[in-house]
Nucleic acid binder design. Structure first.
Lengths: 190, 190
DNA sequence: GTCTATATACAGATAGAC
DNA sequence: GTCTATCTGTATATAGAC
């Protein structure tokens, strides 16, 4: 891997683990096996490098989610597949965790990929819920956008619960509760 | 307010806003209007002060939640009251945000109040769901612990969505979706 | 209890040699 | 492109005077 590549990948790792505020240029250089001068040759500074890392992480999360949500099956099944997909639960969401980073939230540029990704995810899920409603699978009275927001929030909050208890179980339990509620909102096939 | 009090309160504010990693002793001193020597006279250092602050914040959150959850009304209504209670949504949860702080999670002492508070909250809500089931208000097939985890996760994740979009609307939308699903899981009064 | 002085290390770069 | 030197400021304290 080229040096800029290693720097971006290292930054992604460290941002995920320690956040923007907790990640120093020095730590990035050491993780990437690159020198000081090398890093500043390829990137203008910490914010520039972080932007590249955040954009890539956001892009990757989007692709992963799209892959699962675009699968086959009923609306319920596709949302279920998304909720049950394999996750590194205790590491948290590499995109969502950035919303708790004051310096990321304070910067329009750094926050933009986070905003866009979570907005996209919500809309993507809302589309599936709506599809399910058109097919008579979900009750037509539901607000697709609201259900989608609940789904995304449960995932993001599930990470919080899991990290608080230092165990992935809490994430799974929250997801199980949501799936039970969602299933109860499906209408039996005619 | 006494100097130790001002130091604790300042630390609470800064932990809420910038997290543990992003909060320096110097910033605390300035916010509290206390000198360097003064702070180190009353507290052993940053972790000691943070522990006092986190404990108090956790205690306060518990008291607030208990006040709302212990109100009158049906199980659904009490959970609804908790979900709709006034919140400083864009600031996030002062307890939950600590789970994204690497230094807090790495310390058993600092993490303990976070773990305990979220565990307590989950159990408290599970008790209410179960009560609702015993009264025939909620379907008996639901897993009370799972529903409680979903409720807490939706709130914690709602903060993430709100901060990502820099607007409290996403929090409200997620809560609305959850309430719709919960309501659909109630059985009509006989 | 509070203040000032001092100390070591790290944060986040810039400059210029190679 | 990469390296080393250098720089200013901050992080997180400790020591001792008042």
């Amino acid at each position: 891997m080229s040096t800029p590549e290693r720097l971006i990948e290292s930054t992604r790792e460290l941002l995920w683990e320690r956040g923007y505020v907790g990640t120093s240029p020095k730590a990035i250089q050491q993780h990437a096996g690159a020198g000081q001068g090398s890093m500043y040759h390829h990137f203008a500074g910490k914010p520039d490098l972080a932007l590249a890392a955040i954009r890539r992480t956001a892009q990757e999360m989007r692709a992963t989610a799209d892959g699962v949500l675009g699968g086959t099956g009923s609306a319920y099944e596709r949302i279920e597949a998304y909720l049950l997909r394999e996750r590194d639960v205790l590491r948290g969401c590499p995109v969502g965790r950035l919303t708790m980073d004051p310096d990321v939230v304070a910067s329009d540029e750094l926050r933009a990929p986070v905003t866009e990704t979570l907005d996209w995810l919500r809309d993507r899920i809302a589309g599936i819920v709506q599809e399910g409603q058109e097919r008579g699978e979900f009750a037509a009275t539901l607000d697709a956008q609201a259900i989608a927001a609940t789904v995304v929030a449960t995932v993001q909050g599930g990470y919080v619960l899991a990290r608080a208890s230092a165990s992935p179980a809490a994430f799974d339990t929250g997801v199980r509760g949501l799936l039970a509620l969602l299933f109860a909102a499906t209408t039996p096939a005619p």
